[in-house]
Amino acid sequence: MTRPPTAALRRVIDSADPVTGRLRGGTQAQLAALVKRGLAFRHPRPPHDHFLTPAGHRLREGEPSPPPAPPPGGPAAEPAGRAGVFAARIGGEEDAPSDGPARLREVHSAWQGLLELRRMTNPDGAVDRPCGWERGHLVQAAALALEAAGHRPEGPDTAGYRVRATPQPDAVAVHGPDAGTLDACAATLERAGWHAGAHTDPRTRARYLLASPRRV
């Protein structure tokens, strides 16, 4: 079992940014000690800042460690989003959405990772328009853009957005409780590199957005 950090190391952990986990202080020796304990990691890109690992975040926030993995032949793994695997909230989930620090950190990290994926995979390195992964995962990509911007997904007791697939291969539908929500979602998606236009369902007369990733 890893020994607990010293008081000096604990002060370094407590100084970390609560969302990104970036360590704001500490000597090189202290940072190296946190990396050795699995509580921090050194970012491979300049300026090579140090960030808390999930274990470091749990220690900082006083959260219990996750249970050990089941032995071979034990219970199957839980679905994505229930066993520590990030999943964008598309709205309409049975569980009430959580807005706690852990979820905010996960969403922020996922969005930053997606921007880095854009930079690495778009031919010109652009981060202002969706990449190939997003075009292959339209619902999840649009939902992540909305949640990362602070929009609330629809829940059991919460009115918010819902992102759904459409018959069109390059577009998703975004539903909301009112015109104001849809207008705000459209503005967010436009900033994230999507085209978003308002439409009306001919049968229900309900207003919704049709959104597709911008290519140029």
Results as ranks from 00 to 15, higher is better:
Ala7Val: 09
Ala7Ser: 10
Leu9Cys: 02
Val12Asn: 03
Ile13Tyr: 03
Asp14Met: 07
Ser15Gly: 03
Ala16Asn: 00
Asp17Glu: 02
Val19Asn: 04
Thr20Glu: 04
Leu23Arg: 05
Thr27Leu: 07
Gln28Leu: 08
Gln30Gly: 08
Gln30Leu: 02
Ala32Trp: 00
Lys36Ile: 03
Lys36Arg: 15
Ala40Leu: 08
Arg42Pro: 07
Pro44Phe: 13
Arg45Asp: 14
Pro47Tyr: 14
His48Trp: 12
His50Cys: 05
Phe51Lys: 02
Pro54Phe: 09
Pro54Arg: 13
Ala55Cys: 04
Leu59Glu: 11
Glu63Trp: 12
Ala69Met: 04
Ala69Phe: 04
Pro72Tyr: 07
Pro72Phe: 06
Ala76Asp: 13
Ala77Thr: 08
Pro79Cys: 12
Ala80Arg: 03
Gly81His: 08
Arg82Pro: 14
Val85Thr: 06
Val85Met: 06
Phe86Thr: 13
Arg89Trp: 07
Ile90Arg: 14
Gly91Phe: 05
Gly92Met: 04
Gly92Asp: 12
Pro97Asp: 06
Ala102Gln: 10
Leu104Met: 08
Val107Pro: 08
His108Ala: 15
Leu117Gly: 01
Met120Ser: 10
Pro123Thr: 00
Asp124Tyr: 04
Asp128Ile: 00
Pro130Gly: 07
Pro130Cys: 08
Cys131Ile: 00
Glu134Cys: 01
Gly136Cys: 07
His137Trp: 13
Val139Lys: 11
Gln140Ile: 00
Ala141Ser: 14
Ala142Lys: 00
Ala143Asp: 00
